[in-house]
Every structure is written in C-alpha cells, then in structure tokens.
Amino acid sequence: MEKVIQAAEVIQGFLSVSKFLDEAQKKQAEDIIVECVKQAHFKVEEDLFGKGKTLPASDCKKPPTVEKKLAPTWAQHLGKLKHTVAFECIQRRFFEEFPNNFAIEPRYRREEFTNDLMLTDRWGGSKRPDVVLHFTRNATRIHCIYELKFPCGNEQGNPWNDKRVQIQMEEYRALGGECEPVIITPQLEIN
C-alpha cells in the first residue's frame, strides 16, 4: 500500500510540475492583476494627494515635490510607486493561488547560438516584462505576459497609442508565449 501511495504522489508531483494554468486559472490570475493594479493606483494617489484627488495632467512632466524622489518627473515617480505597490499585491495573491506559475519582472534574453530563451541578469539585449505567467516551475516557458501601465494624473489615453509601448509589446511578443502580451491599466483594465 505504501508503494501505491508513493507512486500516486510521484504522479501528482509530475502533473503539478508540467502544466500551464488552464483558462479558468488564467482568468483568475488576470482578475487578480487588475484588482492589484486598481488598488495600487488608488492607494498611491490617496496617500499622496488625499481621498478622491489626483495630480492634474499638467503637472505630470514636472519634478515631484516630495522629499524622497524616485524619478525626475511626477509621471515616472508615480509609476514607480504604483508598480511597487501592485507587485507586492500580485506577489502575495499569486503566492497563495499559483506559487509555481508566475514571475514578477523576470529578465529574459535569447541565447546567442541556440536562440533559446533564458533568464539573465544582463541588461544589454534583455527584456523585463512586469508579470509573466509560465509553465509550472519553468519561467522560460512563457504562458502570458502582462505589462502594467499607470497613466499619470487624470490622463485617460490608451497606452497602445504610444509608439514606444507598441515597440515594447512587439519585443515581448518575440519572447514567445501561448497568448498575446497585454497591457493592464487601472482605467481600461485589460487591453
């Protein structure tokens, strides 16, 4: 009987090590990302500007008027803060639901001779998407890529209209994956 139990555990272990998330799990993961992005957006805005207030779009390119500046403009400063808060939320929630199927800001590059996708710490020639769903315990077998965008202030534009974003998403598409890379914003959610 003990051998049967061990064999069942090995089979279960193999099954949990060798799969992508199914469609229902992928939808659940996307819902978590959207929820965390919205929470991060509203929390940072409220902490800095007060309940229900936001930075006017006309101030986005100005230097932040805070003691601990993370970037030269309000847009970049807020983006860094919101990404940090969103990443903490996503990591906490995914660790509970999908501990072996996600990575936050993994850095990828193609191996020069084989063109295989690999994780790297080199900046040159590498790409770093925000959130990646991947094959169980294998971050180089990409399922889906999610890029978080936080429009500054009361801007409501679609990030896909930005040529730099289009190039960025093409680079992520070249990494491979089972689904098209998507952008998630607090206002437009998944697009």
Rank of each mutant, 00 (worst) to 15 (best):
V66L: 06
T73S: 14
I90M: 11
E111D: 15
P99G: 07
E67T: 09
I90E: 00
R92P: 00
F94V: 02
P64Y: 05
N100P: 00
I104R: 02
K69A: 13
K69P: 03
T114W: 10
A86M: 03
F94H: 05
R107S: 09
Y108A: 02
L81V: 03
F87Q: 05
C60F: 03
N115F: 09
E112H: 10
P99I: 12
S58N: 08
H77K: 06
V85A: 08
P106R: 11
V85F: 06
K80V: 09
K61L: 05
L55D: 09
F42R: 11
M118Q: 15
L55R: 13
G79I: 04
Y108F: 15
E45V: 04
K51C: 04
R109P: 08
A103Y: 04
R93S: 13
A40L: 07
D47V: 01
E45S: 13
F87E: 12
H77F: 01
A57I: 06
F98D: 03
T73W: 03
G50W: 12
L70R: 15
P63K: 13
V66G: 04
F87T: 00
S58W: 03
P63C: 02
C89H: 05
A75V: 06
P106W: 08
K53H: 13
E112W: 10
F113K: 10
R92E: 15
L81N: 00
L55V: 05
F95H: 11
K43E: 14
F49Y: 15
T54Q: 14
D116S: 12
A86K: 02
E111S: 12
E88R: 06
S58K: 14
P64Q: 05
S58L: 03
T65L: 11
A103W: 02
N115Q: 10
R93M: 11
K68V: 11
N100D: 14
F42A: 05
F113R: 08
I104Y: 04
L117D: 06
E88V: 01
T73F: 02
K82W: 01
E67R: 06
C60L: 05
R110V: 10
V66S: 09
K61G: 06
D116R: 14
C89Y: 08
K82E: 04
E46S: 15
P64S: 09
A75N: 09
K82H: 03
D59L: 13
H83Q: 13
A71G: 08
R110I: 11
F98H: 04
P72G: 12
D59Y: 13
C60P: 00
K61W: 02
F87H: 07
F102H: 10
E45D: 15
L119C: 07
L119A: 12
F49N: 08
T54P: 02
N100Y: 11
F49V: 05
T65H: 07
Q76I: 00
K51G: 09
R107P: 00
T65R: 14
E112S: 12
A103Q: 12
